[in-house]
Design a protein around this nucleic acid. Structure first.
Length: 589
RNA sequence: CGGGGUGUAGCGCAGCUUGGUAGCGCACUCGCUUUGGGAGCGAGGGGCCGCAGGUUCAAAUCCUGUCACCCCGACCA
C-alpha cells in the first residue's frame, strides 16, 4: 500500500482547535484524522478511517477465533421491537426517535439486544443448534445529555457488540470466559494499557459484569485498584473492607443532648467537644465527624412500579453518600434524592435531626453503610428539633433493615480482599462483558426444543467494544508533546518516507525505496509534497506513523536516516540497507 | 437541567471600554528566491462580525431578545 501525501485528502493544523480540551481530541483534529460536524458527531478522513479499520480488523480476527459469526443489523429500527422490551420508554431522552412519512415511529439503535434475540428466534428452534455466538460492528446512536471529549463520547459511534446464546448456565459461563479471553487479546494486540474491573451491569440487567478500562486522566469512569492484590472495581461496584464488629453492651447507655444551632456536622462536633461530660455521668469524650451518624433521605422505586418509597441511608458523618455507587448497588431499583415534601409526608422525620432509633416504628426502610458496623456507637439525630442523641448503638438502640455500600470511596480505603490500601484512578471504558441471563430470551420467547421435547429458555451474554472510542483512547494513551504515536497494528502506515532538499535525486531515491517496500508488503506513506523539511518533519511527528525514513542531505554520503517515532531513536544507515532496515522495524512491530 | 465561558475568513485570534463602514497569523492562488526543523519578498482571492429587533446621521462596537457551541456538574451500554 502506497499513500502519497501530495494527493492524500489531508490538511494538518498548526494550532489546536479552540473547542478541543483532551489530548486525543486535539491531536486527532490537528492531524487531520477527524472533523467535527455537530456536537458528538464526527466525520472520519482517510487517515482516521485507516486507523478505525485496523482496529476493526483486530476485533474481527479475535471474534473469529472464538467462533463468533459476523452479522449486520439496521441502525434504523421500528418502534414495535423496542416496545416489546420496554426500552422505547425506558431509554428516555437518550433514544433518537423519528417518524416516517406514514407517521410510524422509528428509532436509531442505541444497542441491539432485541434484534439479535429476534433473529436467533426466527432461525433456530432446536437444542442441537446451540451454543451460538453472533456479533456485528455497527454505528450506534445515543442522544447523550452532554457529548464530550471529541470522539471519546459521541452521540454517533461505532461499537462491536456480540451476544452469546446458551442452553445452560455453565454454557454461559464458558461463553463469557471465551469473550473475556478474546477481549484480553484484542486490547493487548491494540497496544493498550488496560485493567479489568468489576462493574455493575447497568440498565441492561443481568449478573456477572466486568469492564475493560484504559487508565488515563481524561477518563470518565472512576475505579479503584488494590495496591497489593489484583482486586479492581468500578467505584459504582466496589466493596471496601469494614472495621470489626463491636460489643454493644460495652457502650454507655444512650442519652439525649440539647444541641441547638448545630445544623452541620462540623458545628455539632464543636458542640460535643465543649460539653461537660462528667456532669452527664459519662467519662470525658472527644468526637470527630467520623463519630457521627448522618442519615440521608432518599426515595426508591422498583422498575415498572409508579410509586416512590422513602429510604433512609445511614453513613458516618465524615463521608458523603455516593448516589452513583448506591444506584449501582441497588440496581435495578431507581434511587433519587428525596424532595422536601417527600420528607414532610412522614411527620416523625425531623429535618436535620433524623436518627435511626424510630425507623422501624415509622415503617421507613433504613439501610446503613457497612462502615456502620454491628455494636458501633454513634452521635446522631434524636428525631426532635435541636436535639441529638449520643451512644446510639447499632444492635441495641436500632437495627437497620440491611446494609448497602453507599459512602463515597476514598483513596486509601481498604481492599475488601486483602485489607491493603486502595488507589483511585480514572479510566476510559473500552469494553464491557456481562451475563445477561434469560431476560431478553424470556421477553421475546427465545426457546429451544430440548431433547425431552420440552422448550428450554436460552441464556444470553452481552459483550461490547467501543471501536471509535478505542481509536481516541489509544491516542490518549500513546501520544506525546508533538503528536500521535500509533502502535503499528493500528497505524495508518508502517513507514513515512520523507524526501528532503531541493535535489531531485532525493525524491527519486525516496520513490525507489518506497516502491520496493510496497512490493514487499510494507504500508508506506510517502511525503512527496513540495514543502520545506521543517514542515515535513513536524507533520511526520504529528501523524504518528511508527517509523520515519528521511531521504535527504545524507544521500551524498550514501546514507539515509531511520527514526523511531515512539523512542525518538535516530540512526544513519547506508541507502543500500534502507529497505531491509525498514522491513526489520516492521516485523519487530 | 444547574454553574462558567465563547460566537469576527477554512483554522487560531485582535478590534468592542471611547460607535465612523473590518484586521493579524496560519492555510489558499500567482511570481521570484529558498530547501535538515512549521522559509523570504512581492502581488492576490476569501467575511450576513451567530441571528432578530432597537438606539443613532452612522453599530462588529451601545441596548433588548434569541440561537448555537465549549467546559464543569447532574445524567449516561
Amino acid at each position: 500500500m502506497l499513500l502519497r501525501m501530495s494527493t492524500l485528502f489531508l490538511r494538518t493544523l498548526r494550532d489546536d482547535p479552540a473547542d478541543a480540551e483532551v489530548p486525543s481530541h486535539r491531536l486527532l483534529v490537528r492531524a487531520g484524522y477527524v472533523r467535527r460536524v455537530a456536537p458528538g458527531i464526527y466525520s472520519w478522513l482517510p487517515l482516521g478511517i485507516a486507523v478505525l479499520r485496523n482496529v476493526e480488523n483486530v476485533v474481527r480476527e479475535e471474534m473469529a477465533s472464538i467462533g463468533s459469526q459476523e452479522v449486520h443489523f439496521p441502525a434504523l429500527i421500528p418502534r414495535e421491537i423496542f416496545e416489546v422490551s420496554g426500552r422505547w420508554d425506558d431509554y428516555g431522552d437518550s433514544l433518537f426517535r423519528l417518524v416516517d412519512r406514514k407517521g410510524s415511529d422509528y428509532l436509531l439503535g442505541p444497542t441491539h439486544e432485541e434484534l439479535f434475540t429476534l433473529l436467533v428466534k426466527g432461525e433456530y428452534s432446536s437444542y442441537k443448534d446451540y451454543p451460538l455466538s453472533l456479533y456485528q460492528i455497527q454505528t450506534k446512536y445515543r442522544d447523550e445529555a452532554r457529548p464530550r471529549a471529541g470522539v471519546l463520547r459521541g452521540r454517533e459511534f461505532i461499537m462491536k457488540d456480540s451476544y452469546s446464546f446458551d442452553l445452560t448456565d455453565e454454557g454461559l459461563q464458558q461463553a463469557y470466559q471465551n469473550h473475556r479471553d478474546a477481549y484480553e487479546r484484542i486490547f493487548t494486540r491494540l497496544g493498550f494499557d488496560y485493567r479489568i474491573v468489576f462493574a455493575v451491569s447497568g440498565a441492561m440487567g443481568g449478573s456477572a459484569s466486568e469492564e475493560f478500562l484504559a487508565p488515563t486522566p481524561s477518563g470518565e469512569d472512576t475505579f479503584v485498584q488494590c495496591t497489593n492484590c489484583d482486586y479492581a472495581a468500578n467505584t459504582e461496584a466496589v466493596d471496601i473492607a469494614k472495621p470489626p464488629a463491636q460489643e454493644p453492651l460495652e457502650q454507655p447507655a444512650s442519652l439525649v443532648l440539647d444541641t441547638p444551632d448545630t445544623p452541620t456536622i462540623a458545628t455539632l462536633v464543636d458542640r460535643l467537644n465543649s460539653l461537660d461530660w462528667a456532669s452527664l455521668g459519662v467519662p470525658a469524650q472527644r468526637f470527630g465527624p467520623a463519630d457521627t451518624l448522618k442519615n440521608v433521605v432518599l426515595k426508591t422505586r422498583r422498575p415498572s412500579a409508579d410509586k416512590w418509597e422513602l429510604l433512609v441511608v445511614g453513613v458516618p458523618g465524615d463521608r458523603e453518600v455516593d448516589l452513583k455507587r448506591l444506584r449501582g448497588q441497588l440496581e435495578p431499583i431507581e434511587v433519587e434524592q428525596a424532595a422536601a415534601d417527600d420528607l414532610a409526608a412522614v411527620p416523625g422525620l425531623v429535618k436535620g435531626y433524623i436518627g435511626p432509633q424510630v425507623m422501624s416504628e415509622l415503617k421507613v426502610r433504613y439501610l446503613v453503610d457497612p462502615l456502620v458496623v454491628a455494636g458501633s456507637a454513634w452521635v446522631t439525630g434524636a428525631n426532635e428539633a435541636d436535639k441529638h442523641a449520643a451512644f446510639v448503638v447499632r444492635g441495641r438502640d436500632f437495627t437497620p433493615d440491611g446494609e448497602v455500600g453507599a459512602v463515597e470511596i476514598r483513596d486509601g480505603d481498604r481492599c475488601v480482599r486483602c485489607g491493603s490500601p486502595l488507589r483511585i484512578a480514572r479510566g476510559i471504558e473500552l469494553g464491557h462483558v456481562f451475563q445477561l441471563g434469560r431476560k431478553y430470551a424470556e421477553t421475546f420467547g427465545l426457546t429451544a426444543l430440548g431433547p425431552e421435547g420440552k422448550p428450554v429458555t436460552i441464556t444470553m451474554g452481552s459483550y461490547g467494544v467501543g471501536i471509535t472510542r478505542a481509536v481516541a483512547a489509544l491516542a490518549e494513551q500513546t501520544h506525546d508533546e508533538v503528536g500521535l504515536v500509533w502502535p503499528r497494528v493500528v497505524a495508518p502506515a508502517d513507514v513515512q518516507v520523507v524526501p528532503t532538499g531541493k535535489d531531485a535525486a532525493a525524491v527519486a531515491e525516496a520513490e525507489r525505496i518506497a516502491a520496493e517496500l510496497v512490493a514487499s508488503g510494507v504500508r508506506v506513506l510517502l511525503d512527496d509534497r513540495k514543502a520545506s523539511p521543517g514542515v515535513k518533519f513536524k507533520d511526520a511527528e504529528l501523524l504518528g506513523v511508527p517509523t520515519i525514513l528521511i531521504v535527504g542531505r545524507g544521500l551524498e554520503n550514501g546514507v539515509v536516516e531511520l527514526r523511531d517515532r515512539k523512542s525518538g531513536e535516530r540512526r544513519e544507515i547506508p541507502v543500500a540497507d534502507a529497505v531491509t532496515e525498514v522491513q526489520a522495524a516492521v516485523s519487530l512491530g
